[in-house]
């Protein structure tokens, strides 16, 4: 957001998910958003064929976090050649679960009056960070101690020019909550938590050193396979 705008949950820019040449003229670009706990798939559909398109419907394959359409895909009028329409699909997280590779991969089938088309896209795992992901401080300390060191992953966020308070505010807008901050030998250490829609907690330590644009992120989680995706979300949130 610009000056005076409230900062919202990080939404990636739209990318092309289905090029027209692979879908008999239907082009779809899209992204994912989370606003006040509502997860949505936001798509732009363009008809690059010479005939009208109608009767759109969408289905997801099973996926790691049970994302599924919470209603039908609403494309209310037929799509004429060269016409573009925006479609917003609310999602639930109680659909069938199957671990995907990569973890945040989503396989989608979309049909219209011409054919059925398939594509894959990836959502940022921060889409699944819930609004009540601030862990109790005592529970954080106990959990941090309890999770074995083997479950800790460390990453570097390079070239970040925010101070630790600005970083903390930016992350909080995406439901990454700072529980404690300490300054040791000129380094700010932020202890943070987030909770995924399926109840998995992630604990983080963010080290920010004055004058050093490289941050260190250490993540501790009982399901360490999510750490790589969480780190990618840290990068995306902090750099956008």
């Amino acid at each position: 957001g610009g000056v005076g705008m409230p900062m919202g949950v990080y939404t990636p820019p739209k990318t092309v998910w289905l090029p027209a040449m692979k879908a008999k003229g239907l082009e779809i670009s899209g992204t994912f958003s989370r606003r006040a706990g509502v997860i949505q798939m936001e798509m732009t559909l363009t008809n690059k064929a010479m005939s009208v398109m109608a009767d759109f419907a969408i289905q997801f394959n099973k996926n790691s976090f049970g994302l599924s359409p919470a209603g039908p895909l609403q494309v209310l009028t037929p799509l004429s050649p060269n016409q573009t329409v925006e479609a917003t699909l609310p999602l639930s997280n109680v659909g069938p679960v199957m671990k995907m590779e990569p973890l945040t991969n989503l396989q989608v089938a979309i049909k219209n009056n011409i054919d059925i088309f398939y594509f894959s896209c990836q959502y940022p795992i921060s889409l699944l960070f819930v609004e009540d992901g601030k862990m109790d401080r005592q529970v954080f300390l106990a959990t941090w101690k309890d999770i074995p060191n083997d479950n800790e992953s460390q990453f570097q966020v390079k070239d970040c020019h925010l101070n630790s308070d600005a970083a903390s505010n930016k992350l909080q807008a995406s439901n990454v909550f700072t529980i404690a901050k300490r300054t040791v030998d000129g380094q700010d250490m932020l202890y943070q938590s987030m909770k995924l829609t399926n109840g998995i907690w992630v604990l983080a330590e963010l080290k920010v050193q004055a004058g050093n644009p490289n941050y260190m992120v250490s993540l501790k989680c009982r399901a360490p396979e999510v750490s790589q995706c969480v780190f990618q979300s840290y990068e995306a949130i902090l750099k956008n």
Binding site: W144, R182, V184, D185, S218
Partner: peptide
């Protein structure tokens, strides 16, 4: 008193992570 204990515990955690 418990809050003081937690503040102290976070300080110890941060210290231990900076000077292991």
């Amino acid at each position: 008193e418990m809050e003081d204990g937690l503040d102290e515990a976070f300080s110890r955690l941060a210290e231990s992570r900076t000077n292991p």
